[in-house]
Nucleic acid binder design. Structure first.
Lengths: 335, 335
DNA sequence: ATGAAAGCGCTAACAT
DNA sequence: ATGTTAGCGCTTTCAT
């Protein structure tokens, strides 16, 4: 069943059918009704490809994240999908992994599918902070469609970023630790992503402002893996002296909690722990984890809102939006 | 840049360009090279909509799950995406929620986007087991594209199902409980989905086979929410007597663990607990959770393999595939 | 091996 | 308010 069939059955031209389908005001109620009836009777659905070809759009946005099997990414995609669906857009999802080449390939692939917009979720897409060139593929993509980044900052025309104020959050957590008498705050991270760099910078700034030294061996690189982190701490704890942990991921923080239990350290008195993302892990942990909530829902909503403004209302939109975090206090800290 | 431009620049017809793009064997190496050069030079990418219109396919599969902000669903989508991507298919993702009407709408929506195949993830799409009619929309969809269900069983032409052997798994867990002297096994569930029904049936069968009574008050409906479950148990424990918990979700099981801690019950001696899905929650818990692994990775792989066989090789494929579960033993049980 | 031309099903400008 | 028609960019059949 195509538009010609419907037109014939309804005794009108295909233009009229098209108008009815697209809710054009200039078609008489009578013919509209007639056409709708024929359409319903034959369960007609316009061919999306033909429509896309004519219009140059299928109302689809591409979402790329490194790995949706990650609570944080899944949450982001969930928020994005909901907001986009509400505005009549569909999501085509890609999981690129963390390798540069695959990121580049995946972006190209989605562009070739003629998406209306590209959303890159995660701080890994902001590059390593050293070479500008490793984000060139994003600027290239932005020549074809507008690109929205979530939790990453990349400069370039037609690139719009939304990110959490991670600097401020870790600054405040570190200050709070210091106020409660903690002197040896272990900063645990698992990548050099944009977001991780912001977090480390906040940590360092707070130490500096308090007149504390920044000690390299208190910056501890690990993996976002509970058991790996726990074992690393057990291994290094002879040479490492710390009374609190600021982790860039909840999984890392829970590794620290597990370590404390094995060592018989009281939480938070002997070891205070703060995680990040306020994921379900934070409350599944025992004791429940104090965690920084990066307000992912807010970020996703703001992203989609601006996207719609740009795509449909052609309004001027904010280029970069920074969202404040919230520190959710639970049992692994005494502040 | 379209196919005409390339044809002109390469001094060939659009048919030849099309042949080159589609890797047709009947084009001389020389012209092929020439065309490829022009294409590269101009960064030509075929228009996906036009291609879709001609071919009737954009190599896209629709994936619908109730909610990707759920560890299990996210894992499934992750596996599916990876396998599909490897075969050159893209995923368009929809989160339908659990309401019947929205499921129906979302299926229709994706069908109208001319997906090559539809994958429904989650046992919620199998209906409530009472009305056949609540899965009619799936059979309707299957008239247009083949439908693959993950962890659900729905009968109908062109519908292919892959599900875990949940019956066997809960049967074995229950038997193991009984062998270890547990007499009052609390079955905790959060829905009447297909999978939940299988789990309950396995539990009941094991009790029956052991000559134990099936007591209605030992079937406890809750939510897949740690705190809610914990509080429900605290509230009902005056009237409820149980020495072990078999939960249909890890989150529920952790709620039971939290309850045991508050009540000062030793795990697993005074309260043994088994969760489901072997999610990250199982190891973030303390003590770590014994959990049934439903082999989601295997299910997803089998699904995509059959899909490719059907779509590209037009081979006869298995209609229903049942995958055995694995019981991952950790610290909340003594078996 | 290559080209010409007829679709694929729709939208939108233009004509009436 | 409705119809005619020219694209949109590709695939594919049929000639050559």
């Amino acid at each position: 069943m195509n538009i010609y069939d419907i037109a014939k059955l309804a005794n009108v031209s295909i233009a009229t059918v098209s108008r009815v389908v697209n809710n054009s005001p200039k078609v008489s109620p009578k013919t509209k009704e007639k056409v709708l009836a024929v359409m319903k009777e034959n369960e007609y659905t316009p061919n999306a490809f033909a429509r896309g070809l004519g219009l140059g759009s299928m109302k689809t946005v591409g979402i790329i994240c490194p790995n949706i099997d990650d609570i944080y990414m899944a949450k982001a995609v969930s928020y994005l999908e909901r907001n986009l669906h509400a505005h009549g857009y569909d999501c085509i999802l890609g999981c690129s992994g963390f390798k540069q080449e695959e990121k580049v390939d995946y972006v190209r692939l989605l562009l070739s599918k003629k998406i209306d917009t590209l959303i890159l979720v995660g701080s890994t897409y902001a590059g390593n902070g050293k070479d500008e060139s490793d984000t060139d593929y994003i600027r290239e993509a932005a020549e074809q469609v507008s690109v929205f980044m979530i939790n990453a900052k990349v400069s370039g025309d037609n690139i719009y970023c939304t990110y959490a104020d991670d600097f401020q959050a870790t600054y405040e957590v570190t200050k709070a630790f210091i106020r409660r008498g903690k002197e040896k705050i272990l900063f645990m991270y698992d990548s050099e992503s944009y977001s991780a760099r912001q977090k480390m910078a906040g940590y360092e700034a707070a130490l500096q402002d308090a007149g504390y030294p920044i000690r390299g061996n208190l910056k501890f690189k690990t993996k976002n893996d509970i058991e790996y982190t726990r074992d690393m701490l057990l291994e290094y704890n002879r040479t490492l002296d710390f009374d609190s942990v600021l982790a860039t991921e909840d999984g890392i923080a829970i590794g620290a909690v597990k370590y404390a239990k094995i060592k018989g350290l009281a939480i938070p008195e002997e070891l205070a722990v703060v995680g990040y993302n306020n994921s379900i892990l934070a409350i599944s942990s025992d004791p429940e984890l104090t965690s920084v909530d990066s307000k992912l829902g807010v970020m996703c909503k703001k992203t989609v809102e601006r996207m719609i403004d740009l795509l449909e209302r052609e309004i001027q939109i904010e280029k970069n939006v920074c969202v404040p975090c919230e520190i959710v206090r639970r049992c692994t800290t005494d502040f």
